[in-house]
Simulated assay, not measured.
Amino acid sequence: MKQVAIVILNYNGQKHLEQFLPSVRQFSEGCELWVADNASTDSSMEWLAAQPGLNLLTIPENKGYAGGYNYALSRIEAEFYVLLNSDVEVTPHWIEPVISYMQANSNVAACQPKIKSFATPTHFEYAGAAGGFMDYLGYPYCRGRIFDTCEKDSGQYDHTMDVFWATGACLFVRAKDFHAVGGFDELFFAHMEEIDLCWRLINRGHRISCCGQSEVFHVGGGTLHKSNPRKTFLNYRNNLVMLYKNLPAKQLFPVLLARLLLDGVSSVRFIMAGAWPDVWAIVRAHFAFYGLIPKLSRMRKELPIQAELYQKSVVWQYFIKGKKRFSQLP
């Protein structure tokens, strides 16, 4: 069994593979490199087949991020998986610090490097920055990124520390822990499934970390641009699904009521911007969530360990009090 398997899930990403796969191959010596194709309709597979030294896996239908990785990882043997987006440029020695840290800390189930912007390399990138957290209302944020404000990397997050969630853009995860909790929830399809996975891992006594000695550069929006209404739908629906699955019972309904009101406020912001498809996406997301409640009720598990959430509103801190940096949060 190979120790480290780097697995890139591809969907119509030939352009990104041509640009970024060479850096992965150059700086990942000793690792097994896989590309799992999620039923692409471009010429990705023909291009990949011509590349030497790759392990290729074909997924018969587009199962999204969650289902695609579950399918691929069930067929790949390794001690550690590295789930890597196709639009990520890696750097020299990006693997060793993370794997060494996880080997020295057996209760760390998942870890990420620093995620910086490919377009603006001096700054953190939206999808993960230097490790993720979440407030008690279910709003994710990061060291180095709160909502749309991404900080400049001045070495302020070079230390390794535990976080609440690690990004799916470059996710190191211990294989036995991934499979022990059933992998990703395929109900999510894409977006926030990695936060749900990390939450479930923490609730089972594991740790999630960010290793500040490793960094990669992420383009972001390679499959769905952030302004795509499909992405809006998935983010809003999946956030509610995640809360319903994982919050303790005494917190669940007050939080869902608050989110109903806050998502309404968010809709007003889209209305003012004239983004009517996004408004409709939020409405559809809520009704899709309500329809899933019977199924989600059967999935809920009250565990003795509960992950700690930030007990203030990051929305209030950011929009009302003007706290734009992680270090400013009380």
Rank of each mutant, 00 (worst) to 15 (best):
K250T: 10
S313I: 03
K323Y: 01
D135F: 07
A72S: 06
R25I: 13
R259V: 09
L296I: 08
F189N: 02
S327K: 11
D263R: 12
F124D: 02
V315I: 15
H206R: 15
N105C: 09
R25Q: 15
A119D: 13
D185V: 07
C111E: 07
T223S: 13
A130M: 02
A119Q: 13
C150F: 03
A175L: 00
E194I: 03
Y126T: 10
Y236F: 14
V163M: 01
L33S: 08
A249Q: 13
G168Y: 05
E302V: 10
L252Y: 01
T91C: 07
E194D: 15
S209W: 08
G30A: 10
W94Q: 11
D177K: 12
Q3P: 06
W280C: 13
R269V: 12
K250R: 15
N203C: 06
I6K: 04
Q19L: 14
E61N: 13
N246Y: 07
L256E: 09
F20V: 00
Y318I: 00
P52Y: 04
G291F: 06
E32D: 15
L84N: 07
N228C: 05
A190R: 01
G168C: 07
F289R: 02
Y71N: 07
H159A: 11
Q19I: 08
I195T: 12
A258P: 05
F233V: 01
E125T: 07
K324Q: 09
L137Y: 13
S209I: 00
G221C: 04
K63A: 14
S106P: 06
A36K: 01
V173D: 05
N62F: 09
M272W: 11
D37M: 01
V255H: 08
F133M: 14
M102N: 10
N10S: 11
Y71G: 06
Y126G: 05
G64T: 04
G182L: 09
E29I: 12
N12S: 04
I320H: 13
Y126K: 11
P22R: 02
F172S: 08
F178M: 01
Y81K: 05
K245H: 07
G205L: 07
F287G: 11
M272L: 14
L57F: 06
Y318W: 06
G220Q: 02
H225R: 14
C150Y: 03
E125A: 14
T41G: 09
Y11R: 14
F118N: 06
